[in-house]
Design a protein around this nucleic acid. Structure first.
Lengths: 245, 245
DNA sequence: GCTCTACTGTTTATGGCATACACGATATTG
DNA sequence: CAATATCGTGTATGCCATAAACAGTAGAGC
């Protein structure tokens, strides 16, 4: 029924009765410090103590601004996303708009891929999340889709983008932990697969290996474009059935 | 380059030189206990101590079977997935096959939705994961797609299924934590949105709210079917361009 | 001006966690 | 039978989130 404290703060619904001493920090500073820690050492290192140390402040000081670590993580996810760009752009039809929407979201998330490991705790209620939803819905204007369908379509694209960037985060982590390039990690995966599977029981996978699928570097952009086009094609089929408004 | 210990164990590549005392546990027992703990109290409660307590054994005993908690989590994800059904079924074309593949995966994951909060640490290398990949590739036989494209298509479907079930896990968690039904949680989200957004700055979202999108219960199956059909439609466009083999 | 009071950041304490290490018990191998 | 590798356990370390008690600060009301 009620909304978490950090949500109210983020929407600016909290009044500060400026009674006591001046505050030495701000939510923005705290979130920025958390982003620095996360970028440098990954989500596992994002602890209240590390963040406080980054700000030269005692651990418990943070709790004057945030009611729990979970609250802070919600603020982080919202900060990572940032505000959406103005969408759709003037000449865009719905497909171009949604494509731009997904691509922009991907760019935003890729600034802090580690943040995608933060477990989701419910539908997005933070300001930037809601703003992105609004922008996405705007792109779907005039498709003739009803409200439920629009929402489902955006959830589909959103889920795809997040999944795609999260995969990238894994490679980055492997890179950090084991001093290995993305390329090596990928071909290492191919070699492991080859070692563990025999051609009799896994003929299809063997074909994959023979096609050297895992030896090609940097297919992330291609893979993203592929998935996005498939989803947009699927939506196109649907939109074509509806009369445009 | 090398593969984690739990992976080798799971593939049965570890020999046991039965020298010391008899073992009182087994990997299967440990994973089962972990699944019980997770189902009862969520992923946060899946700690080495809780699992050990469930088995009436000291915490450190588990480390005779598993080299780290991360290893155990990998075993859990593989156990949750389980082996794939035989796919495609006799009369299936590729589209029916892939649909069945995704639906079966959803059923498997829904047995332990909390497990989807386990952070992925790389491409699936565990036996069941590989077996599902093999099954998925089998469904795509005769589509004329090349190896990279088949893999990308399955990743797309896999990501979608996981995202969709993970969303369900959030509702379940809210249900457990706040003694509230899924329905109430959803309509609570609608009310929060209504309170935080004004119709001027968020006209599209306001339309959503007026359509009572968040007051309808149990749309999970519909939403899953929707997303799956969109993806399959998108793949159909692609397959239609290729000559069938 | 002065006092009251809400708020500040800090220190200290608690309970949980993963896991390294050393130990005595055990069962197979020579 | 003796040697040894492996078993399960108890203890200890260091990290974590966070509750509680505390002294300093600055605005509100007189």
């Amino acid at each position: 029924m009620e909304v978490p404290e950090s949500v109210e703060i983020a929407w600016g619904l909290r009044e500060r009765p400026g009674k006591g001493p001046k505050r030495s920090l701000s939510l923005e500073h705290i979130v920025e410090a958390a982003l620095r820690v996360g970028s440098a050492e990954g989500l596992a290192a994002v602890s209240m103590s590390k963040i406080a140390a980054e700000l030269d402040v005692s651990t418990m000081a943070l709790y004057r601004y945030v009611s729990s670590k979970g609250d802070l993580l919600m603020l982080i996810t919202d900060a990572v996303l940032g505000p959406p760009p103005p969408l759709p752009e003037p000449g865009d039809d719905w497909r171009q708009g949604v494509h731009r929407w997904g691509a922009a979201m991907r760019v935003a998330l890729q600034r802090h891929p580690w943040s995608l490991r933060i477990p989701i705790t419910g539908p997005g209620i933070m300001p930037n999340h809601v703003a992105w939803l609004e922008a996405g819905l705007r792109c779907l204007r005039g498709t003739g889709l009803d409200a439920d369908t629009k929402l489902a379509a955006l959830l589909l694209v959103n889920g795809f983008v997040r999944t795609e960037v999260a995969l990238l985060a894994d490679l980055q982590d492997a890179h950090r932990t084991s001093q290995v390039t993305d390329e090596e990690a990928l071909s290492g995966y191919g070699r492991s697969l080859a070692r563990l599977t025999d051609a009799q029981r896994f003929p299809e996978i063997h074909e994959l290996l023979e096609a050297r699928v895992f030896d090609k570097p940097g297919g992330e952009d291609d893979e993203f474009a592929f998935g996005m086009e498939r989803i947009l094609d699927g939506l196109t089929v649907l939109v074509a059935q509806k009369p445009p408004t």
